[in-house]
Amino acid sequence: MSVKEWEPKIVAFLCHWCSYAAADLAGVSRFSYPPNVRIIRVPCSSRVNPQFVLRAFAEGADGVLVAGCHLGDCHYVKGNYYARRRLWVLQRLLEFVGMEPARFQVHWISGAEGAKFAETIKEMVDKVRILGPNRLFQEVKDICVG
């Protein structure tokens, strides 16, 4: 088996009403962006429990992106305000345990911003590619002895 070159693996939680539509628009408008991103649709950015992010990292993601509507434009009026506070705290915590800030990003991307979506993904993949595979949270998966 040939050894495949490492590629960054990004998990993106996109809000159904804005950022997922932006991803759709990016596709329809034929903007190209790297295929390293795995999109997960959530009803709102505030649906993203910090555990989702931690789980993604534990399962081997090299970067996690959360994207939602612009503040004030939330379909559920104030969901992204809640998300903003929670995810800001999560970012502080991840940095405290030694994670590089670029690995976990939060962006507000509206449904009309297909180009911004493609750009965001491109930038993030570039940054994570420079950082290399995520080493925090990682350990060789082996059977525990004793």
């Binding site: 789980r55 534990a58 915590l93 991840l94 925090l136 949270f137 998966k141 525990c144």
Partner: peptide, 21 residues
């Protein structure tokens, strides 16, 4: 099922950070 019973560093991280949050 958020967590397995395995003694595995990624899940130890996940456990402690989740609990702190």
């Amino acid at each position: 099922d958020w967590m397995s019973k395995a003694h595995w560093l990624p899940e130890i991280y996940q456990y402690h950070l989740t609990r702190a949050l």
